[in-house]
Design a protein around this nucleic acid. Structure first.
Length: 551
RNA sequence: UGGGGUAUAGCCAAGUUGGUAAGGCACAGGACUUUGACUCCUGCAUUCUCUGGUUCGAGUCCAGAUACCCCAGCCA
């Protein structure tokens, strides 16, 4: 592992230099989600970039809801986002901030622009404006309303603010340059009329600032020094700076720096796609464990610490990067292995009768071989036990280290057992195995008499707890496109095993608050807090264990 | 010849004022093993999108070319 000082990402380098040169004294960054959707992995990525910079330089990090469009935003999203921030463990000061709280100031700045002759009221319809805007290769044309007097513009703007016009009838535009090759600068709209109830300002306003105008002002008001956002805003930077530079602001201006988007192989994070998926009903909602929403990841059992470990490992790209999910899975295993208790659970049970055992014996087992602090537990060894069907084979392939007819394996934490008889039903289906155990070979006894090819996990048939285990695979079998999003869905993205059984010690750990476990030889699992009932736990597989076994 | 951004292994990603390609993931071998896990070894770019040039020496400098991404919402 590298240490942070060696792995300065490009943004860190810029900030380090500015701090060193004394250009900024206190670093302030921010995360400005629009409360119109749920946070997802990409959000965590953006949060981490700004948050870690602020933390590293002893600065502060603001959470600011960018709520300048009442038609899309809702209080339920701010609540959900607040919950996610909490889960991530992000310190954003005592209170979240709201862009809408600066409405008066933003309005005043717009008025200032009008007074300076740098903004004008335009009557062009949206469609006309598009025509006047030009194209990527052709310059635009000036609006016929561009030369209104300052007085007229001011009057009209006040009238607009007073609600004298209908939606779409008029807008306030910055007067910049219709021929600028950067379309963002072609007299952009900075205020428009929206007759809608705002969840915070309620009905105080009927006009709302556009992102490009509001954002730099919001940053400035908060004293943000580094406004970090994704690459899609590079073109907007020119307008961000134009706005700041034309407002005659006394204090240090914030600087916008863009970073590349994060993609994960097989994972879709765009809001539109996620909505389409959830609306289709093929998932269980926004917190479906297959979704990269923070709620989904949490339910899936992903820990926030593993998310940050992963995020810090991939760095900050300048261009869009597609990281292999295996890197994320690696971070997950690393994070989970040290403090998860390791239990035994059988997913696809095959009954085994230990013919020479009559009395139940309680065996002792480490909860985590590498972390003695996690203690030990007792495991009941009974006459009838359950093993996983795939741990027995009548026609074993080469290098099969499990149970075979007349073969011997060790029961983890128990004894060697030998398979003497395979019982089948009329159709040839294996119903149960008859085995004998060797008392000499007890776990921890130091028995060295003979070797066994492998060790398998097992659970008492009579004392094990029935449970449901949900296995997950990538949501998509192929890279989904916009129109065949649903057809690309992996039919095996969720496999539910209803006959699984887990050792009884689970109850004690669960009762003590444990949620994440390793199921020996199988992977890491989390107790699903939505589906688990008092009489039957439901587990989600977080991630499987690595395996060098090749079938 | 719209403008802008970016190019280092299968995937991320370091690479100081030019000095002879870090690290991680994945993968492949091997050691260890009462989890086919973990851990530990070993291997994995004669080459940095390409082509020229400058230089004793270029991933780093210069010139040209190519590829990919972003922008034409009164969304953010």
């Amino acid at each position: 592992m590298h240490n942070e000082n060696e792995m300065l990402n490009f943004i860190d380098k810029i900030v380090a230099k500015e701090v060193e040169e004394g250009k900024v004294s206190k670093v302030i960054t921010r995360f400005p989600p629009e409360p119109n959707g749920f946070l997802h992995l990409g959000s965590a990525y953006a949060i981490n970039i700004s948050y870690s910079i602020a933390k590293k330089y002893g600065g502060t990090f603001n959470l600011r809801f960018d709520d300048t469009n009442p038609t899309k935003e809702d209080i339920s999203f701010v609540e959900s986002i607040l919950g996610d921030m909490d889960w991530l463990g992000i310190d954003y000061g005592s209170e979240p901030l709201y862009g809408s709280d600066y409405s008066d100031q933003i309005f005043d700045y717009a008025k200032y622009l009008v007074l300076q002759g740098k903004a004008f009221m335009c009557d062009l319809s949206a469609e006309q404006m598009r025509e006047y805007r030009g194209t990527l290769t052709e310059p635009g044309r000036n609006s016929p309303y561009r030369d209104r007097t300052i007085e007229e513009n001011l009057q009209l703007f006040m009238d607009m603010r007073a609600g004298k016009f209908n939606e779409g009838e008029k807008v306030l535009r910055a007067k910049i340059d219709m021929a600028n090759p950067n379309i963002t600068l072609r007299d952009p709209v900075i205020y428009r009329i929206i007759q809608a109830h705002h969840y915070r300002t309620e009905d105080k306003w009927c006009i709302y600032p556009m992102y490009d105008f509001a954002h730099p002002i919001q940053d400035y008001i908060e004293g943000v020094t580094h406004s970090l956002c994704s690459n899609e805003f590079v073109n907007n930077r020119a307008l961000y700076e134009w706005t700041l530079n034309n407002l005659d602001l006394p204090n240090t201006l914030p600087r916008q720096i863009e970073f590349g988007r994060l993609n994960l192989t097989g994972v879709v994070t765009s809001k539109r796609y996620l909505k389409q998926l959830v609306d289709s009903g093929v998932l269980e909602g926004w917190d479906d464990p297959r979704l990269p929403t923070l709620q989904g990841l949490r339910r899936r059992g992903y820990t926030s610490s593993s998310i940050f470990a992963f995020l810090n490992e991939i760095g900050v790209p300048k261009v869009e990067a597609t990281v292999d999910v295996s890197m994320f899975e690696h971070a997950l295993r690393q994070d989970l292995k040290a403090d998860s208790r390791c239990l035994m659970a059988v997913l696809d049970p095959l009954k085994v009768v230990i013919t020479n055992l009559d009395d139940t014996e309680y065996l002792e087992a480490d909860n985590n071989q590498e972390n003695a602090a996690l203690g030990t537990r007792k495991i009941p060894f009974t006459r009838e036990i359950l093993i996983d069907r795939e741990d027995f084979s009548e026609n074993p392939p080469k290098k099969y280290n499990r149970l075979v007819p007349e073969g011997e394996v060790r029961l983890k934490n128990g004894y060697f057992i030998r398979c003497n008889e395979v019982i089948k039903d009329a159709s040839g289906w294996i119903v149960e195995l008859h085995c004998t155990y060797d008392p000499e070979t007890k776990s921890g006894s130091g028995f060295t008499g003979r070797k066994v090819k492998g060790t398998i996990h097992w659970v008492s048939a009579s004392l094990g707890l029935p449970c449901v285990v949900r296995l997950y695979e990538p949501l998509f079998t192929s890279k989904p496109s916009e129109d065949d999003l649903l057809s690309a869905i992996n039919p095996n993205s969720l496999i539910t095993l209803n006959d699984a059984v887990i050792e009884p010690a689970f109850r004690d750990f669960s009762g003590a608050g444990d949620t994440h476990f390793q199921f020996l030889r199988q992977g890491y699992f989390v107790c699903d807090n939505r589906l688990t009932s008092t009489d039957r736990p439901v587990f989600n597989r977080i991630v499987s264990l690595k395996s060098s076994y090749k079938r």
